[in-house]
Write a protein that binds this DNA or RNA. Sequence first.
DNA 1: TGTAGCATTAAACATTCGTTTTAAACGGTC
DNA 2: GACCGTTTAAAACGAATGTTTAATGCTACA
Lengths: 220, 220
Amino acid sequence: MDSMPASSALSTRDRILATAERLFAEAGIGATSLRAITAAANVNLAAVNYHFGSKDALVEAVYRRHLEPLNTARLRNLEELEARGRALDVETIVRAFVEPLVEQARTGASGTTLTRLLAQSLHEAAGYVERFYARENDAVLQRYRDAMQRAIPALSPDEICWRLNFMLGTLHNAFLDAGLLKLLAHGDSDRAETSPEVTLTQLIPFLVAGLTAPGQREAI
Amino acid sequence: MDSMPASSALSTRDRILATAERLFAEAGIGATSLRAITAAANVNLAAVNYHFGSKDALVEAVYRRHLEPLNTARLRNLEELEARGRALDVETIVRAFVEPLVEQARTGASGTTLTRLLAQSLHEAAGYVERFYARENDAVLQRYRDAMQRAIPALSPDEICWRLNFMLGTLHNAFLDAGLLKLLAHGDSDRAETSPEVTLTQLIPFLVAGLTAPGQREAI
DNA sequence: TGTAGCATTAAACATTCGTTTTAAACGGTC
DNA sequence: GACCGTTTAAAACGAATGTTTAATGCTACA
């Protein structure tokens, strides 16, 4: 039943998924037509509706394919660390959360596709956040929130939420646009590396310092 | 020549601008049709092309109406501070940059419209960043980069760029989505205030700490 | 070998989009 | 009262969209 055509290593369904993922990340979901996807994937237009039913269902399939492994890795990282019994510091928690993203950016078919997709979901025509991001990320975020609260007991629960929110915003944008960075560099150093590794190196101190900044309740 | 109809306080042109701004921020530019704009603004469809020429020109007009005052205020804030002759610390610079955004969110017609628009410009189908955001913000960003470099001389120019980039990402997302914040709070404190003032109070310590975190060159 | 079932194809479907056109009204100014 | 910029109205244009249909190709299994 799983007969693969010899002409391509991927099935029609998988080729649609991979191409849609790339185009969605590049231009956004709304701006990417099914015809653009099927043309780039060398499949028939009707194949999308045949395999997925609708464009919305295709979008959901694209998200699901990446969000599930991401969340699984994030959860596994945290559980492994907590299983050691020792208290976790902020940097360790941040790395456990970010590392799966970087890993997927490094090994993924088209680089930072996932992070671009996630960022898209936060900005595209309403509904994607609630329908995919929230549902998939809910449990993971709760776990990290609790871990972060234990690592920074001086902050109130509200402050923990705010800072995790800031962290997510920083994270998504950090991997999203090299455009702003180049604009900031302004030729002075347009050699600016934007690889996932370099981004991570620059990002971790920023996030850790921001997260551990003094809160409202503290003396200083 | 500036004849206002008695039926409305705003001219047709201004009503189109205000409505387009709101709908763009809500659903994105690509997902907002001219018919939706003209219907919501109670003006004729052809009025858009009459006053602006095209949808793209309307988009540019919407951006320009908000970006110009924002950049002017940001530049004026920094220049006033620098005119005092004393060295500026990081928090002062951050506040000078963020305050115009908060002010516009507070007095603007529909709250955080501007920040949502800016965030949209970073994600919508390619071109908006280069065409509006970059062009308008270029000089402002250079000034703030230099000020920040003087305030944190221990950081390399590259690190300054990275951290300003992170700051912009954090900033845009912070005012963008209350959705993620509520997801994080998860009912434990769904009283979470998301007013511009509260957001600012939570944001400043995060940004200042992140910006002033130790860099690569430092001993610790 | 023949038939059932999934996969792929080409064509057409109905909508919606931005834009243009033509026409008619309204409201000031010279 | 005639001109002119503004606005509304209705209609149509071509292009692009998501979706559906009907026909064909192909493979597996009996």
